[in-house]
Design a protein around this nucleic acid. Structure first.
Lengths: 352, 352
DNA sequence: TTTTTTTACGCAATCGTTCCCGGCATCGTT
DNA sequence: AACGATGCCGGGAACGATTGCGTAAAAAAA
């Protein structure tokens, strides 16, 4: 039931040559006469010879395959990233094996084991929201496995990293909300040990401070991911909407939190932007069609995938061990729509 | 810079055995004494031996890899399908290589070539919207490559197929619109040679006929996909909204068409559902949050991925050529929301 | 004790490819 | 004429694992 492939041996036999000669002819070696080359090349073309990548992999001890670990393919941010990853990888002749952690540490470990047992040449990782222990990754990295982190990075491991300027994204978004008259800006955040949570929180706090608004711990709600993320979001949003004085804006620090929040607000019949301004990090394709059109902080996901992959391939193909690692910081994009258009207030009356 | 893997030879040398013995011990052969087995197993565990899958692939002439061709990963339907594919494949120890046609025939061909050159064991295909020529796929299939089609299938090739009941989906949706008082139901469709377009159109027509409404060719707009799909949708929707008497509903026959249509209607400031009812095929996660919440025909994408993969693996692992092929038809789900709630009219006054 | 059987292991081929090494013409140089 | 240089090609090992076959020693049967 297999699809018999033609090998170099078939060519050798048919042409009365040795496999070495055929191999060299195909690789255009100087040791082979032009006539022989031509003959081999033509015959190979004729019978549609395709080199067996598996045999090559065995010989070169390279699988030409990279592993990718993401949270969830069905998440727009990740699917866009994968898009970028695939485009670079395929162009350079690498396969991509994708595995999803579904934001579970245990699954992430399983996938990591699976991938490394499949002899991959390198790893592209965005750690799960739950991942708090990096021993296995550290071990892998110490053994020489090329790893590039993107988005949700591991600061303790010294390698290439690609992130967006989360600080700036959150800072700009918060500033935008303040300029639209908000002073009680609530935040829906992921667990606090995540790199992106920390960076985004820092941006939020800085924007408050720069505008002379005191940071209020109560306005910040953390949601643990997992099976019951939805319940967590519901509880968190209800907490926010029932505070008195009520928050005048909510900033969602991740895609799922943002859309989840929106869903709760809709059920609670809270009008946006009349009663509450709302914006958040999101890469959803449909945010412009939401009710109301949602202001978002958008990440250059495709580009992130491209760059991460380029860095990883560079690591893989480097002759000597790389010790000089870079951290690429991409710029997020603020897309302002109706969900944050309300009270027009001139900000910074004092300055200027 | 490589991550030196430990091989069966290392174990053999360390234990003073031959590689055959070690191999057999690891595979728990009856020819090996319990003591030797124990020794080998313990040592293998200790030095963390992992069999080299590439060497195995070469020997068995099986790559344990399946190729997947979809339109676009970032399309919710496909990312959900891939989710299902990955879950089954990984559980059975298969890798998945995904490639995107971006709805271009040329890219699809390139990907097909790429995948087959990577010696994959089987292929999971949803042909691009543009694909009109199936020669290469036919050739591949004739040569013995196991192929399973899903969603956008090729009727001319006899193999396993997994689809949703597109006829029923469109029929039910159309019926629903009619029951809500619509009689001039416009349709936004893909190119007509696609299997899913034909089936959905048939369902639409049947529902009209069963309700005594004449089919009006002018109400059906086809959009060619590609770079300028957006322009096509804009033109098509404008055509529909400018017809007199104006259509009282639009049915989108695909995800992109549905959301694209919504975008145009919003720009044209046409109110849904007051002026026009709107629904369509979609697997978007956010359709409940749209303005207004969108009624959709949803496909069981995850399940589709699972079933397709199961069928494919069955094909791959079958000892003798399979000649008895099945076509699994899954049921779409109608999700009714506000975009189709308007004039309540009792339908079928005559009957019953 | 001798023969047969069983047990437990090693040798070597194999998968498809690359590459080191070696060899045979042919040609030019002294 | 003899020698080295060069061009062109083949033999065979290697990558890591499996497996058919052969075989020594031990156990069982004669």
């Amino acid at each position: 039931m297999k699809f018999e492939a033609v090998t170099i041996k078939d060519i050798a036999k048919a042409l009365g040559l040795s496999t070495s000669t055929v191999s060299r002819a195909l690789r255009d070696s100087y040791e082979i006469s032009p006539e022989t080359k031509k003959m081999v090349l033509e015959y190979a073309e004729k019978i549609n010879y395709q080199p067996n990548p598996i045999a090559l992999s065995l010989k070169e001890r390279k699988s030409h395959t990279i592993g990718v670990i993401v949270g969830e393919i069905a998440n727009s941010f990740f699917s866009q990233t994968i898009n970028g990853i695939e485009s670079v990888a395929q162009q350079k002749g690498y396969n991509v094996i994708i595995s999803q952690s579904h934001e579970s540490f245990e699954k992430e470990m399983r996938n990591l084991h699976y991938l490394t047992s499949r002899s991959i040449d390198g790893l592209l990782v965005s750690v799960s929201v739950e991942t708090n222990n990096f021993d296995y990754l550290k071990d892998l990295h110490a053994k020489g496995m090329p790893i590039v982190f993107f988005d949700r990075i591991v600061n303790e491991i010294d390698t290439h990293k690609v992130i967006v300027d989360n600080y700036k994204g959150a800072y700009d978004a918060t500033t935008h909300l303040i300029q639209n008259g908000c002073r009680n800006i609530a935040v829906l955040a992921n667990v606090s040990f995540l790199s992106i949570t920390q960076e985004r929180m820092a941006g939020y706090k800085a924007a408050l401070e720069d505008n002379g608004i005191a940071y209020n711990n109560q306005l910040v709600q953390h949601c643990k991911p997992g099976e019951n993320l939805n319940d967590e979001v519901i509880a968190a949003v209800k907490k926010i909407t029932r505070m008195r004085p009520m928050a005048d804006a909510i900033l969602g620090l991740s895609d799922k939190l943002t859309t989840g929040c929106l869903r709760v607000l809709q059920e609670e019949k809270i009008k946006i932007p009349e009663e509450l301004l709302m914006m958040g990090f999101s890469n959803g394709e449909l945010t412009d069609l939401l009710n109301p059109p949602l202001s978002i902080i958008k990440q250059p996901a495709f580009e992130m995938g491209e760059i991460s992959t380029q860095l990883l391939l560079q690591l893989i193909e480097s002759k000597r061990p790389v010790t000089d690692f870079v951290t690429k910081v991409l710029l997020p994009e603020l897309v302002i729509r109706n969900s944050t258009k309300k009270k027009k207030v001139k900000s910074k009356l004092t300055a200027e």
